[in-house]
Amino acid sequence: MVEMKATRDGYGEGLVALGEKNPQVVVLSADLTNSTRASMFKKRFPERFFTMGVAEADMIGTAGGLSLVGKIPFCCTLGVFASGRVWDQVRVTICYSNLNVKIGGSHGGISVGADGATHQSIEEITLMRVLPNMKVVVPCDAIETRKATIQAGEVSGPVYIRFGRSPVPIITTKDTPFILGKAITMRKGKDVAIFACGIMVYEALEAAKELDKKGISAGVINLHTVKPIDEEIIFKAAKETGAIVTAEEHQLSGGFGSAVTEVTVKQYPVPVEMVGIKDHFGKSGSPQELIQDFGLTRFDIIKAVEKVLKRKG
């Protein structure tokens, strides 16, 4: 059995680790302190923690002001509110001015389940990567989220970190190297390269195991940083395998798969198949039901691989 842990726990741990290293780090929460695990920072550094109430727009603006006097603020709420709700505040106050503000969006994807469409965050990658100066990270497990959070606090400029609510498999270790902007090859393969982020990295690894039994050699790349994207690894995979599959727990339009294909078309326009949500809102249901309903399982990845291999010709 693989060990399970929610990526939001990694975020909370990362905030505390950062807080210990750097007294300039401050955390703001829009009435979702436990949900986002900002509570861990609050407990350790109550004097550097601010409850902002249910007022996300105000939280973003206040964080901008704090950054102008040298603080490194982290804004915490659910992904839907952290990206879409305050998009104009993030665009104008934070990104246009290139302020050193970090945004932690929890409950990314549909795995939040029963709360339904209003709370399922499936557009953040699109919304955030379109903004100049913004960096976008979608870590695959709690350990990686901890590292991503720490590095977000160490690089300058706005960073959006997407993480989730449900416990998910731990697939990296403390020693797995993590550098923002540098993808990680989790498994080598020569027939096809599967690019994934977030919880889909695990699904991709499971899919690759199944494909191996069918005699198909599939590589798996953990492309945790969607922006700035690791072009080199994408070019290399496209050149070497000649076929790409992308997998994201997110809307396909303008999302992770789109980001990958924007790169491939520049040099190696190989066939690409994308696994993700196909222009639907979320809905209430158990996470497992929804993952199946929206076609986000390892089996969907396997189907996509089989399809792309036919197109490879």
């Binding site: 029963a114 709360d115 339904g116 469409a117 209003t118 709370h119 809102f281 809905k283 209430s284 249901g285 158990s286 039901e289 929804l290 309903d293």
Partner: peptide, 16 residues
């Protein structure tokens, strides 16, 4: 309420 396929979504939905 809150079950898959339900018109009674976790938060009110006009389109279900």
């Amino acid at each position: 309420l809150r079950k898959i396929g339900s018109r009674l979504q976790g938060h009110p939905s006009k389109t279900d």
